[in-house]
Design a protein around this nucleic acid. Structure first.
Lengths: 338, 338
DNA sequence: CTGAAAGCGCTTACAG
DNA sequence: CTGAAAGCGCTTACAG
């Protein structure tokens, strides 16, 4: 059924090695020979067997997107992952790489799996999301010299490898907070992601920095941590409404934000008159009632840049961390404090 | 660096073929020999090279999830895809298959790509979402005898292959509609998915069937079609409010539903007193204000069953369509009509 | 039950 | 510039 390179060679009247050279655009093939080979390949609908080529070259031309977290909430946590994957997919397509999906419900499961992935040479490199403070599997990667890049800043303990792509999360939180402070808000609830993720740490820093810069006191009860779900956003606000005073909320995840908005509605709090809200940009932000002020952390860009960085690693280039700039979109959900 | 099977054989004091037999659990190896080989493999941290094995066996042990639609909205359209992928991932893991992601922004781009994927034998089989009425690439699959299963009922024109997993979408829409009819609603707005998808057709049938069964007239202006996004759900309701009369909405997609809810809020319509809403189940449905009545189409199950079906195909078994039953959850967003 | 050999479909030095 | 040969790391008949 499938035509092999031998068939192509025969039909073009050349040797297999010449056919291979022609097909792979080696410089030393005469234009006429190449044309003949290409024509033959076309006629036979020939496409090199991926596996055979991989074995010969020692490269799979595949990279893995490793999500070391329960898939449970990952993709549903707004369209962040959707955009991220789009960016990655785009970059991969440009260099004819394909993308395989790896995941693990619990971080501890990853080490043995990683051992297999790496030793069996299943993929050429890894894109790793959700960097946390643990990440034992990184050692496996390190000692096997398999390239990898993080999406999100890895903890300082991972010093061996510099490849990562991220926003400046200190600044992201700083900007969101400052925007509210400038509107006159003094009691700003900051709903952060889970502290196991490095970005949550950075955002805490940014939040406090903004308060400091404007001479506002830090109130521990206004800094809370939650999973990146609708439910968690909802519960936090549902619990805090009434018991704690705040006139504004920074909630840098669209799903949490949605929960927040619905909890506020339940408690009869109007946005923005009673409580101002700023979140991260997503498709729905502009269409919410009211439209939500948001910081755009550009997930497509993050994915695209991360994949390109990994591809560059694979090409032997050295890489440095890359920070994707965020932008700020002011909409109706934030207004001067009454 | 990486140990090969030759290293293992040498260390165990056997030939390469015996080592291979032992590693692959061939029945005719003595327990002692096997133990020795396994021990050696362990000591060397040996894992068979995936590519080499694939070439030898003629199988990649990979399947592709093909999303023949713009990734733009796919994953963000609620956590349907998230759950779906989780189910698929689970089934793949059980048989040591891995999952590669294929997509294409436009359906027409797929044929040439499919040609390459298939002829280069990149994966052993395909899981295909979003079946539409076009799907020219199916021919490529057919003539190459590469197994595939659809997630979603394929159109009747695809008769050659029976493998698909889906809900009974006629019944899904029927149940949702009937629930509202029984509460006394006579003007039920049905917001459907895009008509290019087969399920949208089925749901239209179910909607009309329910109206018929209860002697209600069909009103063309109450059956609308929209992309599976927040924005589209929002726009439909934003446009129709005031101009068309309805007391209930069936919107079987959580993102659309969210848009609907926010548009209703904008127009000052209370749920469920002014307008009742039923949607598909998702994490947030129970926490919305008010909680949303929903039909659970069980996407995890869909993904799991689809992957298992494909895996069975790969094992040479014949398969038949599999219908995943849906369930109905009544919450506060639907109440008797005033 | 075990081993030597051939083969999976490519690519890549190496001669010519 | 082209061809014959070896090799990538496995598995699989086939002898013994």
């Amino acid at each position: 059924m499938g035509a092999t390179i031998r068939d192509v060679a025969k039909r073009a009247g050349v040797s297999v090695s010449t056919a291979s050279a022609a097909l792979n655009n080696k410089p030393f093939v005469t234009p006429e020979t190449r044309a003949r080979v290409l024509q033959a390949a076309l006629e036979l609908n020939y496409h090199a067997d991926r596996t055979a080529r991989s074995l010969a070259v020692g490269r799979t031309h595949q990279i893995a997107l490793l999500i070391p977290a329960s898939l449970e909430h990952t993709f549903s946590a707004s369209d962040f992952f959707n955009q991220l994957v789009r960016g990655i997919y785009k970059a991969c397509g440009q260099e004819d790489y394909s993308l395989v999906l790896y995941a693990a419900e619990r971080e501890t499961d990853i080490v043995p799996q990683m051992e297999r992935w790496v030793r069996s040479r299943s993929v050429d490199g890894f894109l790793i999301t959700h960097p946390t403070w643990g990440m034992l599997y990184v050692d496996v990667l390190e000692e096997s010299h398999v390239p990898y890049v993080f999406i999100g800043r890895p903890p300082e303990t991972v010093t061996t490898f510099a490849g990562y792509v991220d926003n400046d999360n200190v600044q992201v939180a700083y900007d969101a907070t400052e925007h509210l402070v400038e509107l006159g808000h003094q009691h700003i609830l900051f709903i952060n992601g889970p502290s196991r993720y490095t970005y949550a740490h950075d955002r805490t820093v940014g939040y406090r920095k903004a308060l400091d810069a404007h001479g506002l006191p830090f109130q521990a009860e206004l800094l809370v941590e939650a999973e990146l779900t609708f439910v968690d956003g909802y519960r936090i606000v549902d619990r805090l409404c009434g018991s704690v005073t705040f006139t504004a909320i920074v909630v840098l995840n669209p799903m949490q934000a949605l929960g927040v908005v619905h909890a506020l509605a339940k408690h009869g709090c109007k946005v923005p008159t009673d409580v101002a809200v700023v979140t991260t940009e997503c498709e729905m932000a502009a269409y919410m009632y009211p439209p939500l002020t948001a910081v755009d952390i550009r997930p497509y860009q993050l994915g695209y840049e991360a994949a390109r960085m990994l591809l560059r690693c694979l090409a032997g280039e050295t890489v440095a961390p890359h920070i994707v700039p965020h932008t700020f979109v002011v909409r109706d959900s934030t207004s001067p404090v009454r």
